[in-house]
């Protein structure tokens, strides 16, 4: 695959940061007083949640750009970003669920953040399904851009209304303010992990876009051969 110099540097940087992040998360950060070792899942849960939301923001931005410029380049970025977002959103839900089980004894709690993440995951899923059901490239780009934009705006409203819903139906506060009591070493580790996952996102995005270009090329040759 034709790799540019920039993407090589990005790849190496992500790789090094990943190793450092693993060291920080498992060895450097001290054991938490009440939760013990389990809390370390936080260093993967929070960054993947952050990237899941970031990725959807990128999808929304590129969808707007596509509708304005009508250049399929933007659609390629939007859909690649959504696919990575779906992956990271899945990781967020799984790690969150494991954490909840060990922490609160249940796999799932319907609190604002968890529920919003679940709905974000569902929106990603419907976006991906929609793309799968349209054959014409340009049509697919237009329709999925519209869903990408609406989905992103909706996630914000969903979060607001679920939070409100929860305040109307008081529940034992779970998971609230868990970052507030972090020791400096933990906070540093968390921030480093967030940074690393952001780098990971851009590395994955680059290779996904390259992959998409390659598959479009194969598709194109298929069609040309079919015509002859």
């Amino acid at each position: 695959m034709p790799d540019s110099k920039a993407s090589k540097i990005l790849f190496v940087l992500t790789f090094v940061c990943m190793i450092v992040a693993l060291y920080l998360a498992f060895l450097y950060a001290p054991v938490e007083a009440t939760q013990g070792e389990v809390y370390r899942i936080l260093f993967f849960h929070v960054p993947s949640a952050w990237v899941a939301f970031l990725a959807f923001g990128v999808t929304c931005f590129c969808s707007v750009a596509f509708l304005m410029k009508k250049d399929l380049k933007w659609d390629r970025i939007a859909s690649s970003s959504a696919e990575i977002g779906l992956l990271l959103c899945t990781i967020t839900l799984i790690t969150g669920s494991i954490w909840a089980k060990s922490e609160w004894g249940i796999w799932w709690a319907w609190d604002a953040r968890l529920t919003t993440t679940l709905i974000l995951w569902l929106i990603y899923l419907s976006y991906a399904m929609l793309r799968g059901y349209i054959d014409v490239e340009t049509k697919r780009a237009y329709l999925s851009s519209v869903v990408g934009i609406i989905g992103f705006i909706d996630v914000l409203i969903v979060y607001g209304s679920i939070r409100w819903w929860r305040t109307q139906h008081p529940q034992p506060v779970i998971g609230g303010g868990d970052e507030s009591g972090l020791a400096p070493a933990m906070l540093f580790t968390l921030l480093f992990c967030v940074g690393t996952f952001t780098l990971l996102f851009f590395t994955l995005l680059r290779s996904k876009i390259e992959l998409q270009k390659a598959s479009e090329e194969v598709d194109y040759f298929h069609k040309v051969l079919a015509q002859k």
């Binding site: 709905i119 569902l122 929106i123 899923l125 399904m129 929609l130 059901y133 329709l143 909706d154 209304s161």
Partner: peptide, 19 residues
């Protein structure tokens, strides 16, 4: 506008109308 027409609508619609 898609190949499947009928069953895509609830999949798109339900997560968005949660508010």
């Amino acid at each position: 506008g898609t190949r499947v027409r009928v069953f895509l609508l609830p999949i798109l619609q339900f997560p968005i109308v949660i508010p």
